[in-house]
């Protein structure tokens, strides 16, 4: 039985956009730095950041791709408030296989970061546990209020059948 149904293939190429509700903000940057135990003064100290050549404090590199600050909905049953495709795949576990990030410039607290997710590809491949599994590749593009692309995050998640076969 194939996991990659016609219904699922129809999802390839879909896009969804999440508009920013506000600027990223200094609080979000400081909160992320605290949570990651990162005391780099570039994230905390305007004077230091300016002396290093930046217009203000900057965000740690992965924050822009990590934050679901664009979210504005109640949590679902798993607690998630961020992007989910909710693909029609039954009886599978989900694991993250990898992320490929590309960053174009330091992100500033004044950036309003909207996100465009695109489902790029779904492939079915043999699993070492028997049967097959699905590899879903999505790309998120992070764009500010001026239409400037700040970063791209391409990620692959794997859907593995809970019962091989």
């Amino acid at each position: 039985m194939t996991l990659l149904t016609d219904e699922l293939q129809a999802w390839i190429g879909r896009e969804v956009t999440y508009e920013a509700h506000e600027e990223l903000g200094r609080a979000s940057i400081r909160y992320f730095a605290l949570a990651t135990r990162d005391d780099n003064p570039l994230y905390l100290d305007d004077a230091y950041a300016r002396a290093a050549g930046y217009p203000s404090v900057i965000a740690p590199p992965t924050l822009v791709c990590e934050t679901c600050q664009y979210a504005h909905r109640p949590p679902d049953e798993s607690g998630c408030i961020g992007h989910e495709w909710r693909l029609p795949i039954a009886a599978c576990g989900l694991i993250r296989a990898g992320n490929d990030y590309e960053f174009f410039r330091p992100v500033l607290p004044t950036d309003r970061v909207s996100v465009i997710w695109k489902l790029e590809d779904i492939t079915e491949r043999p699993s070492s546990r028997g049967g097959t599994q699905l590899f879903v590749t999505s790309a998120a593009r992070y764009v500010n209020q001026d239409g400037e692309t700040l970063a791209v995050n391409r990620e692959v998640v794997v859907y593995q059948p809970l019962v091989p076969g």
């Binding site: 992320f32 990651t36 990162d38 780099n40 570039l42 230091y48 290093a52 050549g53 740690p60 590199p61 992965t62 924050l63 791709c65 990590e66 296989a97 990898g98 992320n99 490929d100 990030y101 590309e102 960053f103 174009f104 410039r105 330091p106």
Partner: peptide
């Protein structure tokens, strides 16, 4: 991603810029 970029930037200095990161 934050775990592996922090020590790199601490090492290389404030003008270092991470332009690509691939995590498997």
């Amino acid at each position: 991603g934050a775990v592996c970029t922090k020590p790199l930037l601490d090492w290389l200095g404030p003008r270092a810029f991470i332009q690509k990161l691939t995590l498997k």
